[in-house]
Write a protein that binds this DNA or RNA. Structure first.
Length: 254
DNA sequence: ATGGCCAATTTTATTGGA
């Protein structure tokens, strides 16, 4: 199974690029974030014509997640179902070929000390509890835009980013708690080098200068990680006209 | 070369992203 995660920054603005990605890369599963459409406006017809079914959890303007799959999507769940009244559409999950797959869009957090930052930390804590409702012995892929660069190695200029949002110690600690439950970073399983990023600012020639961060991740429990033979960041999808500011992360699970 | 923010809405500014 070839599985990708991609923050598309509006599926309507990115539809032709997404369809090109599906055709040229031929992934079996694609987790999307920041679709920014309510479910009735999701371009299901075009996606289906490309050979994919979709599970969508959208909202207007902001957020919105989805999972596309060539094979059946079983037992979909929308949000964390933890009783918290949260209108933001940031997690959707479904079972594909025996693997539970979740597409997540972690809050950005804006800046440490703000209400949005507090919401981000709370959301990550809820995500840890969502994981704890299951077992790391089960096959799970938790992937998406985590809005956390786990280590300085994942940052183009660690000194400039120190203590800033996406790199703050509290976010990194929250991310580590997710990992310690029993997840493997599939990109890091295959690459130990720095300078490999999944997001670059639209401004200031960020991509051209490779001034980016690695904040999009594919995390998997041990049984899935053991079957993972490759992981790459698809920089081609960040090039050219009208890109998302994120590139897809693609893994192969045998 | 991959080129100097972008997307959606509240639309000729504002908000949020990261």
């Amino acid at each position: 199974m070839k599985l990708a995660t991609w923050n598309v920054n509006s599926i309507r603005a990115r539809l032709s690029r997404l369809l090109s990605f599906l055709e040229t890369r031929a992934p079996d599963v694609v987790c999307l974030q920041e679709t920014k459409v309510e479910d009735p406006e999701f371009p299901s017809i075009e996606i289906r014509a490309a050979g994919y079914e979709a599970v969508t959890f959208g909202q207007r303007t902001y957020n919105g997640v989805a999972i596309l799959s060539r094979t059946a999507l079983g037992a979909p769940t929308y949000g964390m179902e933890d009783g918290v009244d949260d209108p933001q559409a940031r997690l959707v999950a479904a079972t594909i070929e025996g693997i539970r797959v979740a597409s997540v869009y972690v809050p950005n957090g804006q800046a440490p000390g703000t209400e949005k930052f507090a919401y981000k930390l709370q959301w990550l804590d809820r995500l840890a509890r969502w994981l704890q409702r299951g077992s790391p012995e089960q096959p799970l892929v938790l992937c998406g835009d985590f809005n956390v660069a786990p280590e300085d190695l994942d940052v183009h200029d660690p000194a400039a980013w120190e203590g800033q949002v996406l790199c703050h110690p509290d976010e990194r600690a929250a991310f580590r708690r997710l990992m310690e439950w029993g997840l493997v970073d599939l990109f890091r399983k295959h690459h130990d080098e720095g300078g490999r990023f999944s997001w670059w600012d639209y401004r200031m020639l960020g991509f051209q200068k490779n001034r980016g961060l690695r904040i999009d991740h594919v995390l998997a429990t041990g049984s899935v990680a053991a079957r993972c033979s490759a992981a790459e960041i698809d920089r081609e999808m960040r090039k050219g006209k009208n890109p998302s500011d994120h590139a897809p992360v693609v893994v192969v699970v045998e």
